[in-house]
């Protein structure tokens, strides 16, 4: 064992084991972005109100499934722990919540934007900053948010997720505006990659952590 005792590394390891080791979070995240990638297609089929309702219902099912899977898969295998609430951790949490709120606001704004039939949103004939300025800002915030998470908790795959989602969303919007692709396949590819990485992780998790049978 190393003689160097890093409490920060110990804390990060505890956070990783408690929240990100089982791959369920990855599957939930990837699924949400796959869902978002087909959102414009289903909006045209169902209309904005019904589509939003359907989207929220599927989101609720995904989150409920995630909580249930945590309870029956992860908790019996890795147990439970409560983390401290030090001042530094509270500040970190506040920053994370602020970034989550920014991202969620951007996503909701995108979901609620109803295309105007008389003036269709298109990028043809306009400057790219004018067309994609907001989407570039959203991409930067998304990459920043995931990079911060990766840095704070020592989860390197979060850097990849940030780029997959940030660039995927920007590319999807550009393809939609310039070429009329309603199915946001760059975002879908990113989401599918994240789901697959989560599936690999949960398979490894199940193999590595059997349910203990005894209790002292």
């Amino acid at each position: 064992m190393s003689q160097h005792i890093s409490l920060e590394q110990a804390r990060r390891k505890a956070i990783r084991l408690l929240n990100y080791e089982d791959g369920l979070w990855d599957i939930l995240l990837g699924s949400i972005f796959v869902l978002l990638s087909i959102y414009p297609v289903t909006r045209n089929l169902l209309g904005p109100a019904l589509n939003l309702l359907l989207f929220l219902a599927i989101m609720a099912i995904l989150i409920a499934g995630f909580s249930y899977a945590r309870r029956v898969i992860s908790v019996p295998r890795i147990g439970i722990a409560k983390m401290h609430s030090t001042r530094e951790q509270i500040v970190t949490r506040v920053i994370l919540i602020a970034l989550v709120l920014i991202t969620v606001t951007a996503v909701v704004a995108t979901l609620l934007s109803v295309p105007n039939a008389s003036e269709p949103r298109t990028g043809v004939g306009r400057g790219w900053i004018d067309v994609l300025g907001v989407d570039i800002a959203v991409a930067v915030v998304t990459i920043g948010f995931f990079s911060l998470m990766a840095y704070l908790f020592g989860i390197t795959r979060m850097y990849l997720y940030g780029w997959l989602i940030g660039v995927g969303n920007l590319a999807s919007t550009a393809l939609d505006l310039y070429m009329g692709y309603q199915f946001h396949f760059p975002l879908a590819i990113g989401g599918v990659i994240i789901v697959l990485l989560g599936a690999i992780r949960i398979t490894r998790f199940l193999r590595q952590y059997a349910i203990p049978t005894e209790e002292p």
Binding site: A10, G79, P212
Partner: peptide, 18 residues
Amino acid sequence: LTYLYTIESADFVFLMRL
């Protein structure tokens, strides 16, 4: 003790995994 220092409390299984 180092791990317990960084968390508020944990069950036996979590400590074993950690």
